[in-house]
């Protein structure tokens, strides 16, 4: 069985907001180390990977590995019934087809109980190889959100170029183009500053639609890391106290 007590429902609410438009149904894989989710979008262009560590919960018990197949739309609706600062307890019995959620109000005696149907989801688990990326950029997550939202007004794609100069985001739309250069901030470390590590010049093009979607995770962390190597998927990573959310995005190819 699973019993997990989360100090604030906000974390789960924000996580669901970060993935619900990318993936419809997914397994939350629970084991004694915590809860993991890995899912690819229908078009096999993006993959999201979430980890919530057992140590991030006020109380956590999972006797044996338990996949909780969830419709993310339904889960989002049930979580909307929780206030951000409610304590959130999720429970599931072994082989059960129901997930129960309890929201305990912080400053009153209100206790709300909800149940959600679980589903069998037959999804392959993918092996994500460890990659030595050619470039690693760390920046304020709000800055990344602004850049991808701004450029998505102009065109469908962004070219990300990492060089000695810094990291440049370039959009070349039909009617307008734009580019934003971020230089490494020498006097300011993350979360406020920008750090750039580069072994090799990187030049890759990505769909802005996906990046705008990923940027929703800025509610979970003040810092985002972009990991890039030529011709391999981009890794966009947000770390927070209880775990992380990582997105992989296949680059656009050819001319």
């Amino acid at each position: 069985m699973l019993e997990a007590r989360l100090a604030e429902a906000a974390i789960l609410k924000r996580l669901l907001d970060s993935i619900k438009e990318l993936v419809t149904d997914a397994n939350f894989e629970c084991n004694e180390e915590g809860i993991n989710l890995q899912a690819m979008d229908n078009s096999h262009v993006a993959l999201v990977s979430v980890k919530l560590s057992a140590s991030g919960f006020k109380k956590y018990r999972c006797d044996r590995p338990l996949p909780l197949g969830v419709n993310l739309g339904s889960f989002t609706k049930v979580l909307k019934c929780a206030k951000d600062d409610d304590v959130c307890i999720i429970k599931a019995a072994d082989d059960a087809d129901i997930l129960s959620l309890t929201y305990e109000a912080r400053n009153s005696d209100r206790i709300a109980e909800y149940e959600m149907k679980l589903m069998d989801i037959d999804a392959d688990t993918l092996n994500i190889p460890d990659t030595d990326y050619d470039a690693r950029v760390s920046m304020p997550s709000a800055e990344f959100t602004r850049i991808v939202r701004d450029l998505s007004q102009l065109g469908e794609s962004v070219r990300i170029e990492v060089s000695k100069e810094g990291v440049r985001f370039i959009s070349d739309g039909e009617a307008a183009n734009g580019n934003i250069l971020l230089r490494q901030t020498d006097d300011d470390a993350p979360p406020e500053g920008v750090t750039i590590e580069m072994n090799q010049h990187v030049n890759l093009t990505f769909s802005l639609k996906y990046l705008v979607n990923f940027a929703k995770s800025s509610t979970l962390s003040n810092v985002v890391q972009l990991m890039l190597s030529n011709d391999v998927p981009l890794l966009v990573s947000y770390d927070f106290n209880q775990g992380h959310i990582r997105y992989y995005l296949a680059p656009k190819i050819g001319d």
Binding site: H44, S157, S207, A250, G254
Partner: peptide
């Protein structure tokens, strides 16, 4: 213009 690539091929099924 560039075509959208896919993740298949980068990640193997466990």
């Amino acid at each position: 213009s560039k075509q959208q690539g896919r993740l298949d091929g980068f990640f193997s099924v466990k």
